[in-house]
Design a protein around this nucleic acid. Structure first.
Length: 567
RNA sequence: CGGGAUGUGGCGCAGCUUGGUUAGCGCGCCUGCUUUGGGAGCAGGAGGCCGCGAGUUCGAAUCUCGCCAUCCCGACCA
């Protein structure tokens, strides 16, 4: 490839709208251009990187016996209605109508469509099956951000496994887990597997692969001591035991004029936050619900969703609250409340002599015994872990790490196979629904995650495995016929030896070419110039270290081969 | 959806407060000459619905209203 003929529109200045390093560098390096929010064009260099990422994933998928397929991106509404997700997916799903008036959806994931296909499986003898594809997903994200990190249109490698039973699913899940570890290792992404919430996917168990990065949108709770790792939507911690006094025989009401916050109550009325019950009012699928937390604890909404199975969750409006409880936030409580569901965080279990709102403005109750005074309908872990709390496994202090979710694997069970009649006859002749798993990697997001972890002040530093080219031959003086000839010969020689090589033959000054080689992140640069040729050498520079060595032109292939681990 | 910010040649920006030449600067682009190993110099040149639509005015990039788009924070989000 000749740089002079390749479309690599590098930018001299940082684009104003790009914040995250990957966004900024992919724009500047001529890899991507934005069409609109959340939609990017991939330019020639990016397409080369993407192909490498895909090939690595493909090799590992094939390595665990998965078969590549390609399913449609436009789906009939009817299929999504059958699984119930036409409704559940809400505004995140792009919908359209064809000329006949038929309602269609753009694919945001493919569980339904794969399950429909899997209905053609007949016998347990055909199992296990593992199918995968690289296909575009469309999601009407409320807020796309940070270049390729969160887009509305992206390529996903998604795979789906079909097994006869749970044991088979566990094995398929483990195989994917292993493949994912190898994939991210090969991509140069330091992914941490973490326990995760399954969200609208359903299913019993899921693991996310998280790449630590300040550009990430997720928080991982991590224990440096024992390596416990969980998404904050799922993570727990060990709490110190608190000793409560028995308190009075019944709650006592007391006036708290002007008190609106936990802090007010703690400082003004000798009620430590750990001894307060915080009463949050949520609307879960149109059902007003009381959610009780310890005063110093924060609710994690995803945990609330997971605990209740609710599809739509929002905090109640003040007028809804007043109508239901007769008071405004600041004086709410669950004592004596009937007729509304009451959910309580486990940290409140067994607590006595607590303080909470009286459901009368400016009044609170003390001496509340949770078991005695509150009709808790469901106990759940709802608390959001904070940094420094004790690890649930080993008790050491936990850390919070910002991370990009680069992969997510789910044990789905039979939710979709039942709906779509994906059953096989077992050895006993009885029909059983297939047990499914689903597994996803965001391809362009993975590219962004790689850049997040592999760049410096001069630009991208691609790991060799995904670099658009292995080596660039930089002709320092293109206008000098001898130098140009030497460069061209070296280029031909390297290409013939099988290296992915590009020659920078542009009529630019050397400095421009050096800058662009560094910005675009090509791992090796061969500089061919008058200076070196006079003494019979060219220079071989490593992008990552900046280290340069002088090499005889006909030694370059061998040296590169050594550096890149090929003959 | 709430809060904040920004829309002016391909990129980065100034001009707007106080309306009034032909809308300006840097980079990039084209031509020529010179230069040539870390983003060259000089000369000449091309390129603009000043986000869109109304309004105010003799006159709007500039003032008013509405809309749209993009970015950031939050909400939200496999």
């Amino acid at each position: 490839m000749h740089w002079s003929q390749m479309f690599v529109p590098t930018l001299r200045e940082d684009p104003a709208d790009a914040g995250a390093p990957s966004h900024r560098l992919l724009l500047r390096g001529g890899y991507i251009r934005q069409l609109m929010a959340g939609h990017y064009s991939l330019l020639p260099l990016a397409v080369r990187v993407r192909a490498k990422v895909i090939e690595i994933i493909r090799q590992e998928m094939n390595g665990i016996g998965a078969q590549e397929v390609l399913l449609p991106d436009m789906h009939p509404a009817e299929i999504w209605e059958r699984s119930g997700r036409w409704e559940i997916m809400g505004e995140e799903m792009f919908r359209l109508t064809d000329r006949k008036g038929a309602r269609l959806a753009l694919a945001m994931t493919h569980e339904e469509i794969f399950a429909v296909l899997a209905a053609e499986l007949n016998s347990h003898k055909q199992l296990p099956q593992a199918w995968y594809q690289f296909q575009t997903k469309f999601r009407d994200e409320p807020r796309p951000r940070a270049g390729l990190i969160r887009t509305r249109e992206f390529t996903m490698k998604d795979s789906y496994t079909f097994d006869l039973d749970r044991v088979g699913l566990d094995a398929a899940f483990d195989r994917h887990y292993g493949a994912y570890v190898r994939i991210f290792e090969r991509l140069g992404i330091p992914a941490i597997p973490v326990e995760a919430s399954s969200g609208t996917m359903g299913g019993s168990d899921s693991t996310e692969f998280m790449c630590p990065s300040s550009s990430g949108e997720d928080l991982v709770v991590y224990c440096p001591a024992c390596k416990y790792a969980a998404n904050i939507e799922k993570a727990t911690s060990r709490l110190a035991d608190l000793a409560d006094s028995p308190g009075p025989d019944a709650p006592e009401r007391f006036g708290t004029p002007g008190v609106r916050t936990i802090e007010d109550l703690a400082t003004g009325y000798d009620a430590a936050a750990t001894r307060q019950i915080k009463t949050l009012i949520y609307v879960l699928d149109d059902q007003l619900t009381l959610v009780l937390m310890r005063g110093d604890h924060a609710l994690n909404e995803q945990k609330l969703i997971d605990a209740t199975g609710a599809a739509a969750v929002r905090p109640a409006q003040p007028d809804e609250i007043r109508e239901a409880l007769g008071a405004l936030p600041g004086s709410l409580g669950a004592v004596g409340v009937g007729g509304l569901p009451i959910l309580a965080d486990r940290a409140l279990d067994g607590r006595r002599d607590m303080v909470t709102g009286a459901n009368v403005d400016d009044m609170h109750l003390r001496g509340v015994d949770v078991a005695r005074d509150i009709a808790v309908g469901q106990w759940a872990d709802l608390r959001e872990v904070t940094a420094g709390e004790a690890c649930p496994q080993c008790g050491e202090p936990l850390e919070l790490i910002e991370a990009i979710e680069v992969g997510h694997i789910f044990k789905l069970g039979d939710r979709y196979s039942k709906v779509f009649g994906a059953t096989v006859l077992g050895p006993d002749g009885k029909a059983v629904p297939l047990i499914m798993g689903s597994y996803g990697i965001g391809v362009e997001r993975a590219m962004a995650a790689i850049v997040e972890g592999h760049h410096d002040e001069r630009g991208i530093v691609w790991p060799l495995a995904v670099a658009p080219f292995t080596v660039v031959v930089t002709v320092a003086q293109s206008e000098d016929p001898e130098v140009a000839k030497a460069g061209a010969e070296l280029y031909e020689q390297l290409a013939a030896a099988g290296f992915e090589v590009i020659i920078d033959d542009r009529a630019e000054r050397a400095g421009v070419k050096f800058r662009d080689a560094e910005l675009t992140g090509i791992p090796y640069r061969i500089t061919v110039g008058k200076r070196g040729l006079a003494e019979g050498t060219v220079e071989l520079t490593e992008r990552a270290t900046g280290e340069t060595r002088k090499v005889a032109p006909d030694e370059v292939g061998a040296q590169l081969g050594e550096l890149t681990g090929r003959a």
